[in-house]
Computed example of a mutant assay.
Amino acid sequence: MEEKITGKRFLAVTLLNVLITIVEIIGGLVSGSLALLSDAFHNMGDSFSIVLGYFAQHIGGRPETRQRTYGYRRAEILSALTNSLLLIIIAIFLIGEAIQRLDHPQYINGGIMLTVAIIGLLANLASAVLLHSGSHNSLNVKATYLHVLSDALSSVAVIIGGVILTFVNVPWLDPALTIAVALYIAYESWPIIVQTIKILMQESPNLNYEAITKDVKQVPGVEDVHHVHAWMIDEHRIIFSAHLNCKDLPLSQVEKIYSQVEDILRHKYGICHITLQAECSRGRDEELFNTPVDEEHVIKEGGYKKHQH
């Protein structure tokens, strides 16, 4: 069952990130650490993404309406995409700044860098704990959770750098750590971007269509399956439609067939919204998935093209 992250948790995480941002900006300016300043900007972006994630979750929970018959679930997908793209942009910015710093190394106060990084790590770990429970069930919360987790990892990197720079002056270490953290951020964000784009483009979910066809055709009265469509509203809800070639039966018996097919699709394949259309002989020769039609099968009516089955 999907677990929602409460507004209080989102607020707590936001306040923690704002606090970290302020502390790290001051610490970065005083110590001269680019890694610390980059982590501060990362946390600033996190504060925005957390607020965005909260409102997206709130909007996504609204019921279906006349204008939004599938509800507002895509709000969370859009939020996850926005947050992940923001992380990629931040990573690119950090790498660019680090490369410039490699050409012009600066003195870093390792003691201040270390102290501030430890504070940042503790706050980020607290934020990660608050978001962890909802990160398994929502791409939106997962994107926000990854923001916080990547901050915690970057804090660890900065701590290691701070320890080293406290005792040894290594000019290239600070920008090198920045590049490493930025690459990790991009690596963690990219799969979410890919998955959200697939959902927004209504790419077919990972279903075994051959097995579905075989199971449905075993229902008494069903002779064939064609014109199948499947897509996802979000990472949990699969929408499925299909045409069934059935024997010439009364509508009361067709409804019983619908019920059996729906039970199979819901319980065996996890499909939540199912639309079925019974046909006797129409479309019997069609493929499982609708293929592009020839011009001979397209009739122009009133400026529109109507597909004849």
Rank of each mutant, 00 (worst) to 15 (best):
E203G: 13
Y145V: 08
A117C: 04
S154E: 12
S135D: 06
V156R: 01
S150H: 08
S204N: 12
L125P: 01
A98M: 10
G134D: 12
T196Y: 03
I95H: 08
I199E: 03
G161E: 01
L149N: 03
A182S: 08
I199S: 05
W190I: 11
Y107D: 09
L125F: 10
H147Q: 10
S204W: 11
M113P: 02
W172G: 05
I164K: 00
I159N: 00
L122W: 03
W190F: 14
A143C: 05
H132S: 14
V156Y: 03
N124L: 06
F93V: 05
L122A: 14
L102A: 04
V163T: 02
V170E: 00
A157N: 05
I164L: 13
G134K: 12
T144G: 15
G120I: 03
W190K: 03
E188A: 14
N140C: 12
I119R: 06
A123F: 12
N137R: 14
Y145C: 04
W172M: 02
G120V: 10
D151N: 09
L146Q: 01
V129R: 08
L121G: 02
T115I: 13
I95S: 12
L139F: 13
S133N: 14
S154A: 15
I112H: 09
L125E: 07
N109F: 11
S204H: 13
R101V: 07
N206D: 15
L177C: 00
W190V: 14
L173Q: 02
V141G: 03
T115H: 07
V116G: 05
A157D: 05
A117V: 06
M113C: 02
P205Q: 15
L149S: 12
P105N: 10
V168L: 15
I185Q: 03
H147M: 11
A180P: 00
L94A: 14
L177I: 06
N137C: 13
H136V: 07
H147Y: 12
S127G: 15
P205R: 13
S189V: 08
V141W: 04
V168Q: 09
T178M: 01
I95T: 12
I185W: 00
I197A: 10
T144N: 15
G161V: 00
A182K: 07
T196V: 08
L102K: 00
V156N: 04
I164W: 05
N140S: 11
